[in-house]
Design a binder for these strands. Structure first.
Lengths: 128, 128
DNA sequence: GTAAGCCTTCACGCCGACGTCAAGGCAAGC
DNA sequence: GCTTGCCTTGACGTCGGCGTGAAGGCTTAC
């Protein structure tokens, strides 16, 4: 299939696909006209990229997963490099969530001290 | 005081201060040489900006707080506009934290299903 | 023939919050 | 007089992940 069809099937754009190729993430074969050609496996690779992107992974972080799939593994996260990225991401998420909760708590305290009434009866008690 | 001293006292840079002025956030008086001049109150305004920035507020969101201080209130969050920003920020934080926790949970499950051993004995059980 | 609809390669635009030169002015110390 | 150190304005660079437009080529449908 060509770039437009692949983009449509993965819910993205041709521009994004060319960008991935430029980054070396999703190279394409070419037909005799110079048009990019993709197969079913590329759909799988692209879906992996998009899923991880939705999770907040940046492009470089998706690379190990894509290479894992391309190496023949049925899942992109079956390889050590992918697992390492998972672990790093979990640590990052924990740190980030912790910071955000701290900020949330601080703002909640400041908000309460302004003496302005809360929306209704509840105080919206969150953890931390 | 001049721009360099103010920057140093607030732990920021002259470039940032000129940027704030260009955005109309922290205008400066000028001396006879055309140099920017600031007073103690500007230190307070700038500290308010930096604090909120550290909390993840973007510049425009700090504006109500700064204007509140400039209006003579002892605290930047004593004004309705500031309180409104607090409320919006709390909602944003709750939404964001929720998404991040969902992603964290998903990744944790995927990681567990890779069969790779966790770092040590604990599974790092978080909420959700 | 020509318009539509794919595709190609540049290459600049965008967002936020500045960083980083460049070119110059003014004042103080040696 | 010359250097050092502060300041000025202006303008381009950064980062990520593309969006958007230009200028053109090929094929298919009318």
């Amino acid at each position: 299939m060509r770039i437009g069809e692949l983009a449509a099937r993965a819910g993205t754009t041709t521009r994004a696909l060319r960008y991935y190729e430029a980054r070396g993430l999703l190279p394409a074969r070419r037909d005799e006209l110079g048009h990019r050609t993709y197969d079913e496996n590329d759909v799988k690779l692209l879906r992996q990229i998009r899923t991880l992107q939705d999770f907040g992974f940046d492009l470089e972080e998706t690379r190990p997963f894509v290479e894992c799939l391309r190496a023949g593994h049925p899942e992109g996260d079956s390889c050590p490099a992918s697992v390492a990225v998972y672990r790093r991401k979990l640590a990052e998420l924990d740190a980030l969530i912790g910071e955000l909760q701290a900020v949330r708590a601080t703002i909640a305290v400041r908000l309460a001290s302004t003496g302005s009434e809360p929306p209704l009866c509840e105080l919206g008690g969150r953890e931390l």
